[in-house]
Amino acid sequence: MIRCDKIQFAYPDEGFDLRIDWLEVRKSETLAIIGPSGCGKTTLLNLISGNLLPQAGTISVADVEIGGLRLEERQKFRIQKIGMIPQSFDLLDYLTVRENIMLPYRVSGALKMNRAVKKVCEALAERTGILQHLEKFPDQLSTGERQRVAVCRGLVTQPELILADEPTGNLDPENQDRIISLLLEEALRIGATVMMITHERTLCDRFSRSLDLLALREEASK
């Protein structure tokens, strides 16, 4: 599903240099990425999603080389193939929960809104326990409920790849567990590959594999 081959990405001014010789993630695999702050976990997800382009090396997602796509093509590819779940939820406070979940269909010309999408939205909301909140605004929800909305939005396009950037970082252990379960169950249901950043090593057991990014970088620098 994902192949990173001798990639390099640096912020010279900040002394940041991410190098990975080889990373492969198989289809439907669930991967937990761990590592200390600043080691490049979020940068790696941004490189895989095409938000950033590597300065060297190639990244392929679903057999498509991301760097070979033009900006608009890359954006279209991302919205069709990848579901992103950010740590900060990124919910728009002026939209209802339902509208936030279906936001990708509103803003992207690459996706078409139809009745089936609305059913998917409601089904996701039901499974994540926020069905009764669909007409509420984000500021009327608890932190855990907002994170569930962000999960639903990441999944509403039924993506082949789910990139989650510490989606449980702001949650208590009970909610952390609930969100991880939801994410993995949904990924299993639609056969999606999952890459999730986490600081909680205890959560790694829930994934089919875990990846220590710092170790991977050290390996590359040898």
Partner: peptide
């Protein structure tokens, strides 16, 4: 500003 960059990541084109 954060909202706009987020919308961009969600697939909104630059003119939108």
């Amino acid at each position: 500003r954060e909202e706009f960059s987020h919308l961009r990541r969600l697939g909104a084109d630059i003119s939108t």
